[in-house]
Design a binder for these strands. Structure first.
Length: 491
RNA sequence: GGCGCCAUCGUCUAGAGGUCAGGACGACGGGUUUUCAGCCCGUAAACCGGAGUUCGAUUCUCCGUGGCGCUACCA
């Protein structure tokens, strides 16, 4: 079965993580079953307060970043182009008129004011909301008169008054709704543009979409679309609704919980494979095996649409962060270098185009700090001691390790032994020097280690001292030690 | 209010008519070490409630409760 699946974002703002999660499921389904992954821009809402054309670039960036580039979309075109709804308006208008001709839809001349009043009244009476169908029963001559007067109107779907509409959902099973609860949905707005319900059905049919995979929030309106398919005599696609992702308080994921826009995760330094893995696990699991860390290929092998869950999933930022650190640990250093460079230059720690010597140095630094990174952005603080001269020492550390006569002694003595190491400057030699200093001063080596750490980096936490000094290099270390003598507090 | 969907540790989840209800994140405790991170070991932590079916239900059915979603000429 060659299935065709589409991802249909609206350019109404920076794309949401949950939205890209849906895109991942769509892509996975298409790839898994040897089909096509299509993306279509649903830009029929031109209200300036919602229409945000800038977001299109972010949608494209997000898909590319995740490695789920559509086979057919507005960027590269395809056999069913255009893949932008605003360029397909005639199709929707013709379809709406066809429905009117067949008596499956009707013209509605109600003004927005009247509809607002109606809704307010329904609410006041605690009645069910929905269009009262006044225009559905207009006499033909009334319609003609209004039309002749050029009165603006919409076209509404004439939903059957009785009976039940049901559809089968691959995830949720059979869903049925009595038609009397289904609203006479506007299909064509008075400005001639379609609503989602019309456009999505027309395009999915035209583009030969076999599986509609989308958020669970679309479930309540699916009967309207099923009715449209029936009215048009078209075969329905397979319906697949995916549970939503929500925040810790079980409310819609919002800024209160953390990042929500997909590009925020890109900027923060999450790895694509971590985002992919994490997002897929939010609402899908491979089954019996107790494995969570999986490559795209491994996920692909196990993925089935039927395996998608029915419960909304809370977006756990902590777990994502953990997963990202796991992937960073698995990331090879050359790639990590490329990923880190922009953060380092943005922080002013590096030039935009560092020399090969500098790159080699940063590579060695990365080998020391990789296991400590959760986000690529962490590279800035972790690498800072290696890339900029410490101006001062951390106050608490200063009191502990760089105050009093003992501090000067430790510094002098350690410097002396470190100074004797020449070309063979490496962790083993450095450790030996520290041991010698400890022996001479007749103290444990810990105080010396702490003192050296603070003196060379200005901070009390960091990688293993010996390796760190090795990477920093002889000249830099000795220079910093001389400099640090000025920091010593007299007791 | 109406309509729809859902219900296993705090979270993501596995699971089966009879299991010590398993794993992961997080939390907590211990170990390693030179600090922090990490790593290793361990601990606590769940079947929403009530009926029914059954020898036996957390698992199947119904009801209740709770949560979420929709209720626009937005998608």
């Amino acid at each position: 079965m060659a299935l065709r699946v589409r991802y249909a974002p609206s350019p109404t703002g920076s794309p949401h993580v949950g939205n890209l999660r849906t895109a991942i499921f769509c892509w996975l389904a298409a790839r898994k079953y040897g089909g096509q992954f299509i993306a279509r821009l649903e830009d029929t809402d031109r209200d300036p307060s919602r229409y945000k054309p800038e977001s299109i670039a972010e949608i494209e960036e997000s898909l590319r970043w995740l490695g789920i580039v559509p086979d057919e979309w507005w960027v590269s075109g395809g056999p069913h182009a255009p893949y932008v709804q605003s360029e397909r308006l005639n199709l929707y208008r013709e379809t709406a008129e066809l429905l009117v001709t067949r008596g499956m839809a009707y013209r509605c001349f109600c003004t927005e004011e009247r509809l607002a009043d109606m809704r307010q009244q329904q609410k006041a009476q605690g009645a069910a909301s929905g269009y009262d169908r006044r225009c559905r029963y207009l006499q033909p001559d009334e319609v003609h008169r209004s039309l002749a007067e050029g009165r603006p109107h919409t076209i509404r779907l004439a939903v059957p008054l009785e009976g039940t509409t049901r559809y089968h959902d691959l995830v949720f099973g059979v869903v049925e709704v009595e038609n009397r609860f289904v609203d006479d949905q506007v299909l064509l707005k008075s400005n001639g543009w379609p609503t989602y319900h019309l456009a999505v059905v027309v395009d999915d049919h035209a583009m030969e979409i076999t599986h509609v995979i989308r958020g669970e929030d679309w479930m309540p309106s699916t009967p309207k679309q099923v009715l449209l398919y029936e009215a048009l005599g078209w075969d329905q696609p397979v319906w697949v609704h995916i549970p939503l992702t929500i925040g810790k308080d079980r409310k819609k994921l919002s800024k209160r919980h953390g990042a929500t826009q997909f590009v925020e995760f890109i900027r923060a330094g999450y790895l694509p494979e971590a985002m992919f893995n994490f997002l897929v696990l939010l609402g899908w699991s491979s089954g019996e095996e107790n494995r969570e860390l999986m490559s795209v290929d491994e996920i692909m092998e196990r993925f089935t649409l039927e395996g998608i869950h029915r419960t909304p999933a809370i977006f756990d930022y902590d777990k994502l962060r953990w997963m990202n650190s796991e992937y960073i640990r698995r990331c090879n250093l050359d790639r990590l270098l490329e990923l880190s460079l922009p953060y380092l230059s943005d922080a002013g720690l590096l030039d935009n185009a560092p020399s090969s010597e500098v790159r080699a140095y940063v590579l060695r630094v990365l080998s020391l700090i990789r296991d400590r990174m959760h986000l690529i952005a962490d590279v800035v603080e972790l690498a800072r001691p290696f890339l900029s001269e410490p101006e001062k020492a951390e106050p608490s550390g200063l009191r502990m390790w760089l105050s009093g006569r003992g501090a000067s002694e430790r510094l002098e003595c350690a410097s002396k032994y470190l100074g004797t190491i020449g070309a063979a400057w490496n962790a083993a030699q450095i450790e030996e020097a520290v041991n010698q200093a400890a022996a001479e001063l007749q103290i444990a080596r810990a105080p010396i280690i702490h003192t050296l750490r603070l003196a060379t980096t200005g901070v009390t936490a960091g990688p293993s001292l010996f390796e760190m000094l090795e990477v920093l290099g002889r000249e830099r270390v000795l220079r910093r030690l001389r400099r640090a003598k000025e920091w010593v507090l007299e007791a």
